[in-house]
Write a protein that binds this DNA or RNA. Structure first.
Lengths: 221, 221
DNA sequence: CCCGTCTTGTGAAAATCTTCACCAAGTGAC
DNA sequence: GTCACTTGGTGAAGATTTTCACAAGACGGG
């Protein structure tokens, strides 16, 4: 249970979603092969990823869809709810806290903060935008465990520090800025500029380097 | 020039941003060490990444900030402009095409599409939302090279196919769904559900696995 | 010019991640 | 029960990525 890589976790997340779909379609069992096809990965990878957490399948048969989904749910920490605070109620922040999938997956936005007086007090659905100055007071009160940084880059580090001080254990950063947080705080960054630039790189260097897409399964014989 | 990994490119993107900042602060030269510190990476990694493209530094001195920035700019394909089409004018799509950094980095949103009749025709700034049915016609006309998928998951693959058919060479996908595209089309996916779930995983397994943050540079002696 | 100090570029080593290959276990037909 | 076939779990091999370590270049002081 000690050496789980970031990429393994990301794949688990994909497996989980695939299982949801297969279950909705009425599938009862699924093999590592089919699970792999749906995600552009090798069957061996699927089995290795899962075996890091236990033996969930049956030889000759595959995995029970419902059972494996529930196991992954627990492994990913989705069998409970998480209190989330969004800081920054601009376009990105708004898109985030009105995002359906958020609540659907167990993430409850219990607070939205902004620094702009024109925004403070506005209601969006059930949420009222609060002054970011009250973060230190409200976040612990509402048992916030995850903070989402959706501020301009200039304010991002400051906000991250405030979130950490308020006892948040995980931060999801959308500001295009590398944040520094203590080691015990988990940090994920979604950096649009990086994505765009890596896309531009791929287009510019298209002819030269063409790896990057999955190879076809290529089952000999 | 053939074996450039995805992670190298992402780091180049960070170096580029750091260089912009340092240049704005008036810095003239920078060592791999300082460049590394600003991004939570090792100096050796910085040098390896850069050396894959040439020799940009001077021994004993470091890198010339302006020169290296311009070189990276060209390497990343940012020394030209890219025509982008955004498909899906919901919250995410809106956040995207009004995102300042987009144009700032050379990405011009020349078309926004949606399928909802209530949205079609709406103006947002200089952009008018067009019927997605006209994608096949308008995208080639406007020389769109990059497509952004910001639709509900159900429509994502269909839209991706349409973009590919319209001659788009790169796709940035925000729908929580694995897309399949031909090998010659570059694809990047930003999947919020995956980010959240990997964050939840980290929090649940906090005590057990605590790698993931950078180690301190630890310079012996 | 020479010496001490700095810093890059880069093979080699180490660490990490992915794929292979095969055994064991399960199924269904007969 | 036996046989042909399927599939998971897993150690080992292979591939990739990161880090180490050091030679070679660059500078400044005297």
């Amino acid at each position: 249970m000690s050496g789980i890589s970031e990429s393994t976790v990301r794949r688990l997340s994909h497996y989980y979603r695939t299982l949801e779909e297969v279950e909705a379609e009425g599938g009862r069992t699924i093999s590592s092969r089919r699970l792999a096809e749906r995600g552009g990965i090798t069957p061996a990878q699927v089995r290795k990823d899962l075996s890091a957490f236990g033996s969930f399948g049956r030889r000759g048969l595959g995995y029970n869809v419902g059972y494996l989904r529930r196991e992954l749910r627990a492994i990913l920490g989705l069998d409970r709810r998480w209190n989330v605070a969004v800081v920054g109620a601009g376009r990105v922040g708004t898109a985030l806290y009105s995002y359906q999938g958020f609540a659907q997956r167990g993430f409850d936005v219990v607070a939205v903060f902004d620094a702009d007086p024109r925004r403070i007090g506005q209601r969006h659905g059930t949420t009222t935008i609060e002054d970011v100055a009250r973060l230190a007071e409200l976040a612990p009160q509402r048992r916030v465990e995850i903070g989402v940084v959706a501020t301009p880059p200039g304010a991002a580090q400051e906000v991250a520090d405030a979130l950490v001080a308020a006892g948040v254990r995980g931060i999801l950063n959308f500001a295009p800025r590398k944040l520094t947080v203590p080691a015990q705080v988990a940090l994920r960054t979604v950096d649009m500029a990086v994505e765009l630039e890596s896309l531009a790189f791929a287009l510019v260097h298209e002819r030269r380097a063409r790896r990057q897409r999955r190879r076809p399964p290529r089952r000999a014989g």
